[in-house]
Nucleic acid binder design. Structure first.
Lengths: 240, 240
DNA sequence: CGCGTTTTTGAAGCCCCTCAAGTGTAGTGG
DNA sequence: CCACTACACTTGAGGGGCTTCAAAAACGCG
């Protein structure tokens, strides 16, 4: 199954052939977007629903002082702003991190799917709730975990999410995030992220080089992070 | 209008008499819950939808080391877990802070409302999206604001939310949160929250005593916080 | 009035930031 | 093929913001 969106949704719900076909068709014309390109900006009127088919993106907000806070990473299969049309303006921006293939679904089409396909509606709700629990997990990390735990926790989250969509192999996966990007997500400076990564590397826990994360000791990593993947609400649990 | 839930929803949508009557009836039998009482605990199967009719509550998560992180405050009119039934287990707990009147709506009833009353459905979506943007605003605060800005920002948020449901009068409102509770929400210690509050008091910005917040200089407060209430997505803007 | 909770204040220390410089590494053009 | 540039990564020194530990004062409630 080459469609990451389908792969992700079918992780939660068993989709009928008709549901599958409808979804397939809805995001059949993805557009290639270059890296570091805004899909939508804070203040804009909500646009269509974006579905990331390939590549990485993030939600972020710029502060007056020029600093940036990333509030979510978007990976293949993730979709944004399912119902944002209800609001009059976006409160944050969404940008690609790498070059990406992005499908768009207009709101009329989405509304139609929601009204007529109860299984899809439930699956969409599930993604929404997982995203929400992920936001809460980030708040917990920022509020009550130190930098080492915080980095470890994010690495665990991204690893599990990558694994769920079949992007890992044998404790490693491609994670094209610079230390500056990680810092913007973790509420740290890139210099400090660098020091934390060194510590994890020297401790034989994990190594992040050239855009790939290699987890040497997943048990140590999970234990440092205090990671519990419940918040990602997976039905199936596969081995690492 | 004595029903805080109705008051809040009608802020976004103009509800028909029938919608109003249905909502009124759905939460017509609130229960009084004592202070510091869990409504639902992490790990529990999702229960009914809770609607806070009176009093304060919060979502929180306990960490292994015994620390606590609050991820949201719930005020009159706020409802939780609209669609949580989709999930198999709660990822966080919800507890009252003060004594509270809490209505419950079972999921079958809610589903019926959503299927038959499009105006209500849109209004529910709006509350959901506001909650989500609030989570993101908290992440931004924790990641990129220092303690003074963070406290100021939270006070702004709570003041605007209280004002929206008619709980303020002339720059003041009842905010029954201890410094320890604020600390658990802000990712600080109660000692440091105390020092920040003193600074704001001595600066003639605001004063928090005996469970009421008195804002002396709203402009200063907003400017310290870098507060912008867009994320609460209000349609109407009333004067303070 | 007495007791638990909350608030307040102080002193010492650590975690992470700021500022600063230097080291790769990939891409470009001569 | 090598200078040149841009960007990401790396490392160090010093400082500040928030924590930890500790204890006293104030408050609220039976």
């Amino acid at each position: 199954m080459s469609n990451a969106f389908l792969r992700k949704l079918s992780e939660f719900a068993s989709l009928s052939d008709e549901d599958t076909a409808l979804l397939q068709e809805a995001c059949s014309e993805p557009v290639v977007v270059p890296a570091r390109h805004d899909l939508i900006r804070e203040g804009d009127k909500p646009g269509p629903i974006f579905v990331i088919m390939e590549g990485w993106a993030c939600r972020y907000k710029l502060l007056p002082e020029g600093t940036r806070q990333i509030t979510a990473f978007l990976m293949p299969g993730d979709c944004c702003d399912m119902h944002a049309s209800v609001l009059s303006a976006m409160e944050h921006s969404i940008a690609t991190i790498t070059a990406a293939r992005v499908a768009t679904i207009n709101h009329a089409r989405m509304e139609e799917l929601i009204l007529t396909r109860p299984t899809l509606t439930r699956a969409f709700w599930w993604t929404q709730l997982v995203d929400e629990d992920t936001l809460r997990a980030w708040i917990v990390s920022m509020g009550r975990r130190d930098s080492l735990q915080r980095v470890a926790h994010l690495m665990c989250e991204l690893y599990v999410r990558a694994r769920n969509i079949g992007l890992t192999e044998d404790g490693r996966f491609e994670m094209p995030l610079t230390q500056a990007v990680l810092a913007d997500a973790l509420g740290l400076t890139s210099m400090h992220v660098n020091r934390v990564l060194r510590k994890l590397r020297l401790g034989g826990v994990m190594e992040l080089t050239a855009g790939t994360l290699i987890i040497a000791d997943i048990c140590k990593l999970v234990s440092i992070a205090g990671f519990d993947d419940n918040y990602l609400h997976r039905r199936l649990r596969r081995a690492a």
